[in-house]
Amino acid sequence: MADANTDPRDLKTDLWKKMSTSPFVMVGPADGSTHSEPLTAQLDEDQVDTLFFFIGKDNRVAGKDKLMLQFVSKGHDYFACLSGRGQIANDRAQIDKLWNNQVEAWFPGGKEDPNLALLRVDIDSAELWETDMSLGGKLKMLFGGTIRSDEAGSHAKVGTTAENSPA
């Protein structure tokens, strides 16, 4: 995230790269009716504005339309808050594309497990923060002190980059 003039597609691509190394996301209903829970995002590089999650049909977010998702990178230097529309989309081709050994560990019945549901979340908007602080800024944060804005990192707000929606 260089600055406010960065292309939203570049920001989303950067987010997806970071999520690919640590795809754990807190997901909950946007209305706050229940707590968020950790889910593992299944990333489809062909759909940069969509996240997929294999969940149980009885999962607390299975029937929720509006969702809020929070992501923190492995190095704790990148943060994202995403909002989107959720729906169960048990498309067999998409399930086959995203299926892996980790998913199978949660669903002993495999792709035919009667409790299996594929949650599709179409991202409507995102706020992204990246802390790319200088060594001096990191020391101030560690030991206390005032951090100047040029030491703090960057922040961006991004709408969807889906081709059928305005960016």
Rank of each mutant, 00 (worst) to 15 (best):
S36H: 03
L39P: 01
L39M: 13
T40E: 03
T40P: 00
T40K: 07
A41F: 00
A41V: 00
D44A: 02
D44Q: 01
E45Y: 00
Q47P: 01
Q47A: 14
T50D: 02
T50R: 04
L51V: 00
F53T: 10
F53R: 12
I55F: 03
G56H: 02
D58Y: 03
V61L: 03
V61R: 04
A62V: 01
G63S: 11
G63M: 07
K64Q: 10
K64G: 01
D65Q: 12
L67P: 11
M68K: 10
M68W: 06
L69N: 07
F71N: 14
K74L: 12
K74C: 04
K74P: 04
G75L: 13
G75M: 13
G75K: 15
G75T: 15
H76Q: 12
D77M: 06
Y78C: 13
Y78H: 15
A80E: 10
C81T: 06
L82F: 14
G84E: 03
G84D: 03
R85I: 02
R85F: 01
Q87E: 14
I88W: 06
A89D: 15
D91G: 09
D91W: 02
A93D: 11
A93T: 08
A93W: 01
Q94L: 10
Q94P: 00
I95S: 07
I95H: 04
I95N: 07
I95A: 10
K97N: 00
K97H: 02
K97Y: 00
W99M: 05
Q102H: 13
Q102P: 00
V103T: 15
V103M: 12
E104K: 14
A105L: 12
P108H: 06
G109W: 13
G109Y: 12
K111S: 06
P114W: 03
L118I: 07
L118G: 08
L118D: 06
L119K: 15
R120H: 07
V121T: 09
V121F: 04
V121L: 06
D122A: 11
D122Y: 01
I123Y: 07
D124Q: 10
S125A: 12
S125Y: 07
S125H: 10
A126S: 15
A126F: 10
A126G: 15
L128P: 03
W129M: 00
W129D: 02
T131D: 04
T131K: 10
M133T: 14
M133Q: 14
M133C: 12
S134I: 08
L135I: 13
L135H: 06
K138E: 13
K140I: 01
K140Y: 04
K140F: 05
M141H: 11
M141P: 04
